[in-house]
Write a protein that binds this DNA or RNA. Structure first.
Lengths: 343, 343
DNA sequence: TCGCAGAGTTGGAACGATCCAACCAGCCCG
DNA sequence: CGGGCTGGTTGGATCGTTCCAACTCTGCGA
C-alpha cells in the first residue's frame, strides 16, 4: 500500500484565514497566542477552524519552529518478554501523558555495534528533539554523550556514573524493601531473610540496603540471613533452599525480584512448607507472574514516573529535580498468614 | 529543559551543494535518484555528504513529499503487564525492521470515549501516513473506518468482521494447536483434553478447532475431554480439576493460553500428580511465566509477523496477501515424560 | 551544416506553517 | 493639534527539501 489514496485535500491555515476573512498570521495567533487577538475575531476564527476541520500540519510546524516536539524511546528486543521487564509499561504511560505536553514518542532500536548510532540518526535528521533513556547501567555511554551534545533527555533509572546529573526518575527500591520488611514483621513472620542479586549491581545493592534499613534496630543476625543468586530460576531456587535450611522452618524471604521470589516459593514448597501460611515471600516489580501466583510484590509507580519524566524534560530548568518514587506494596497470599482460600 | 541548546547548525543540502560545487538539486538526486547523476559527480557529492555529516531534515522532506513515512501504533494501558500480552514484542519487532522501510513508528493511546479520536488526530496533523492496528476484535470500528477513509493500515489479528479485507497478519493458532496435539500424542500421553475459552471469541474458537484437527482420526470422546474457563487463574484451576476427574489420572491437557495452562498445572499438582511425568500440559503464547515454570508453550513468530506487516503496508498492492504464520512449539518439562532434573 | 535525442544539470516554485517587522487606528497626554 | 503609545492585524521572508520545467552539451544521423 505504497500510494496514499488521492490525498483528500486537508484544510490549511490559509483556507481558514480566507473563510474567516482575516490574515494567515491572525489564524496562527489564535492557535498559538490567543491573547493577542480580539475576542470577536478569535471566536470567528475558531468557528471556521471547527467547521473546516482544520489541524495544523506538524511537518510544517517542525520545519519552521526548528523543533520536532518528539522524543526518541529506545526499545530493545533482548529485554522484551523477560520477567520484570517494565519498560513497556513505562512507554505506555509516557505515551498516555505525551499529548498533555504537545509531544509524541518515536521508537527506535539500538545498533548492535554502536550504541549511539540510533541516537545520532534520530537527532541528525531532526526527527526528535531529545530522548527518554531507559535501562541505565554502569558504564553507560549514553548520558555523557547526550550531555556533551547538549541534547535534552531524561533517564529512567539513576545515572549511576554521573552523580552530578539530576535529570532522572527512578523507583525507590530501597524504600520499597524497607516497607516490605515492616509488612512482613507486622504479619508476625519473626525474621526476614534476603535473597538478592550478587553485590555490584546498582539497583540490587540499593534494594539490599533497604532490607537492612528495615531490620535496623532489630537483633537479626543479618549475615546468616542473606543469599545471592543471579536472575535465573534454578539458581534462585537453590539459593533459597540454602536460606531455608538456616531459617529453621520459620520466617520470611524478601527477594530483589519476582523471579527470585518465584524460586523462593519453589524452595518453600519443596521443603514441604506453604508460602504465606508458613514462610512469607515477597518479590519486586509486580509482574504478571506475581499476580498469577499470588505473590506479594512491589509495584512500580510507572504513571508517576512518566509524569515526572515529562516534567523534567519540559519543565523549568531551575525547577526540575530528580524524582525518586516509592513503589506500592501489593499484598497477596504469599505474605499473609491467614490464607483466604479460593473457591 | 525547554530550550534546546544553541542549535549547533546542522549542514543542509545547500551546504553540501556549495562544497561539492554543484546545485541543490543534484545533491537531492544523489540521495534519491543516484542513477540520474554522472558517476564522478556522484562520488564527489557523496564525499562531501560524509565530510559534513549531512543528513536530510525529515520535517522538510515530509512537508514537500506530503508524506510522513511514519505509522501510528496504538498502545493501551489496560493490556500491559497482563499475561499473554504480546503486542509489546510486536512493537519492538516492528521498530527493529522499520528502518529498512525508511519508516518509523509513533505511539499513541486511544481515547476512552472515542476509539477513533487518536487515529483522526495523528492523521489530520499529517504526523503519520497510516497505522498498524493491534487487538482486532469483533465489532471493531477501526478497520471499516480506515478503509472508508482510504488510510493505509495493516492489522495484527484477522479482521474478523470484514472477511473481504486482506490487509492483516496473524498467528495460526489452529495450526499451532494441531502441532501441540501431535507432540503430546507422540510423547505418549494417550489422550489430549482441551481447556479453552468459552465459545464466541474468534481466536479461542480457532484454537479449539486446531485441537479437533489434531484429534481427527482418533477415536477420542471429544465432548467429555473439553472444559471452558474465562481468562482467570482460579476459574481455570477449577475447570482443569473437573477435566482431570474425567481423565482418570492420565493424558494431557492442551490449553488456549498460558494462564489457563498455569491453572491446569496447579490442578495437576493439587491432585497429587506432576505436570510432565504424569499429565502433559501445554499453553499458548510463550509468556515469561511459561519460561519460568517450565511450561511447554507455542511461541508467536513476532519477527516474521513484523516483516509481513511491513510488506503488506509498503508492498505492491497487487502482490500483498494476508499472512497466517505458524507458531513454534517450545517444548519444556511440562510435556516431557522423562524429566531432565535440574541441578 | 543543421536538427534532434538524450544524458546531465540547473534554478524557480512549492509544501504549510511561524518569525519578524511594519502598519493602522484610536487614545491619551502635553 | 501633533506625537507617542498600545492593541490588533498584516504581508514578506524563511525553515530545508523535492517537484517540475527548462537549460546546456555532446554525439549522431540526415
Amino acid at each position: 500500500m505504497s500510494a496514499t489514496k488521492a490525498a483528500r485535500e486537508r484544510a490549511t491555515i490559509v483556507d481558514v484565514a480566507r473563510a474567516a476573512g482575516v490574515s494567515r498570521q491572525t489564524v496562527s495567533n489564535v492557535l498559538n497566542r490567543p491573547e493577542l487577538v480580539a475576542a470577536p475575531t478569535r471566536d470567528r476564527v475558531r468557528q471556521e477552524i471547527v467547521r473546516l476541520g482544520f489541524a495544523p500540519n506538524v511537518a510544517a510546524q517542525q520545519l519552521r519552529r526548528r523543533r520536532a516536539s518528539a522524543y526518541g524511546f529506545e526499545v530493545n528486543p533482548s529485554l522484551v518478554g523477560k520477567m520484570g521487564h517494565i519498560l513497556d509499561g513505562f512507554l505506555v504511560e509516557l505515551t498516555t501523558t505525551a499529548p498533555g505536553h504537545q509531544s509524541h514518542l518515536v521508537t527506535f532500536t539500538a545498533d548492535r555495534d554502536d550504541v549511539l548510532a540510533g541516537y545520532r540518526q534520530l537527532l541528525g535528521t531532526g526527527l526528535v528533539d531529545g530522548f527518554i533513556v531507559g535501562d541505565t547501567r554502569y558504564g553507560d555511554p549514553r548520558p555523557a554523550w547526550l550531555v556533551e551534545s547538549g541534547v535534552p533527555f531524561v533517564a529512567f533509572g539513576r545515572i549511576w556514573d554521573l552523580p552530578a546529573l539530576d535529570q532522572w526518575v527512578d523507583v525507590d527500591g530501597r524504600a520499597g524493601m524497607r516497607t516490605a520488611v515492616e509488612h512482613l514483621l507486622a504479619e508476625g513472620y519473626g525474621s526476614v531473610a534476603f535473597l538478592g542479586w550478587p553485590v555490584g549491581s546498582p539497583a540490587g545493592d540499593d534494594r539490599r540496603q533497604g532490607w537492612l534499613d528495615g531490620l535496623a534496630g532489630s537483633t537479626a543476625d543479618t549475615p546468616s540471613l542473606v543469599e545471592e543468586s543471579v536472575q535465573d530460576l534454578n539458581r534462585a531456587t537453590c539459593a533459597a533452599a540454602r536460606l531455608l535450611e538456616r531459617m529453621g522452618g520459620a520466617g520470611a524471604i524478601l527477594c530483589a525480584s519476582d523471579l527470585l521470589a518465584l524460586g523462593a516459593m519453589r524452595a518453600v514448597r519443596a521443603a514441604g512448607l506453604e508460602p504465606g501460611s508458613d514462610i512469607g515471600v515477597v518479590g519486586m516489580d509486580d509482574s504478571d507472574v506475581a499476580e498469577a501466583l499470588e505473590l506479594t510484590s512491589l509495584r512500580q509507580p510507572l504513571r508517576e514516573a512518566a509524569v515526572a519524566a515529562w516534567r523534567i524534560l519540559h519543565g523549568d530548568p531551575k525547577g526540575r529535580a530528580p524524582a525518586l518514587l516509592a513503589p506500592t506494596l501489593i499484598i497477596r497470599n504469599s505474605s499473609t498468614r491467614s490464607q483466604e482460600k479460593k473457591p
